[in-house]
């Protein structure tokens, strides 16, 4: 059974459709790229899956269930917004995650913070933007969830941190988990992806295994993307 399923999902704002009759099934044990230009519906899809928006039509199912506290406990979300409270220290936000998420692995989080030399006594508000991004990513990846939504996980960090993040995504891989990465930086992540989903103006225009696609088209995923979405 698909871990994430969209059945005829539409989301309208007024007379504009952010998503239009989308059907999609994503299986466990995959790392999937959710790719498309701005306004294609990527963020809307992710918000719907996380229960931050309600569908206008259709159903979105996480492990067979509609978004609810139960699904939220098995979904780890890294939004592209700075969502952590300024006033907390790193230790505080870790305790917060421990308090609310049963699947949070404290040791793993502390280990990752250590290898990135992040001071756990520092206030989040006092950190640089890059360091805050790393903390957010660590918190999201330290959960042993079934689905991970990473919205632009490498956009705001330096190249060395990017490598670390991609390695962490690879090493975190579980055969019964699903990782969905939404990003503009296709060339940087394509080696890490099993499947690619192309979204254009609220429609899914492609859903295919990346290696197959490369073999078929004879070009990189990034190259093919540019071809499909040429202005």
């Amino acid at each position: 059974m698909a871990l994430l399923e969209l059945r005829q999902v539409s989301k309208r704002y007024g007379n504009k459709s952010a998503l239009d009759c989308v059907d999609l099934q994503l299986e466990e044990g995959r790392i999937v790229g959710l790719l498309g230009p701005n306004g294609s519906g990527k963020t809307t899809l992710i918000k719907l899956a996380n229960g931050l928006l309600r569908t206008s039509n259709g159903a979105i199912l996480i492990d067979g269930k509609e978004p609810s506290p139960e699904t939220k406990s098995i979904v780890s979300y890294l939004p592209d917004k700075d969502s952590l409270p300024d006033w907390m220290k790193v230790d505080d936000i870790i305790n917060y995650y421990v308090d609310f998420f049963a699947d949070f692995d404290v040791d793993r989080a502390k280990e990752m913070l250590g290898s990135l030399n992040i001071d756990s006594k520092m206030k989040l508000g006092k950190m640089s933007k890059g360091t805050r991004e790393k903390v957010r990513l660590i918190l999201a990846m330290a959960r042993k969830s079934k689905i991970y939504f990473l919205d632009e996980p490498i956009a705001g960090v330096d190249p060395a941190a990017r490598d670390y993040i991609l390695k962490t995504i690879i090493s975190n891989y579980e055969p019964n988990a699903l990782v969905i990465i939404s990003t503009h930086l296709i060339a940087d992540v394509e080696n890490v992806l099993d499947e690619a989903v192309f979204l254009r103006e609220g429609h899914v225009v492609l859903h295919q295994n990346v290696q197959e696609l490369i073999e078929e088209k004879g070009k990189s995923l990034d190259g093919y993307f540019r071809e499909v979405f040429a202005c």
């Binding site: 996380n50 229960g51 931050l52 506290p69 139960e70 939220k72 406990s73 979904v75 979300y77 939004p79 917004k81 700075d82 969502s83 952590l84 409270p85 609310f100 998420f101």
Partner: peptide, 11 residues
């Protein structure tokens, strides 16, 4: 922005 954290809590 904290809403992105609050509303993804299992609550």
């Amino acid at each position: 922005n904290e809403g992105y954290l609050s509303f993804t809590l299992p609550v």
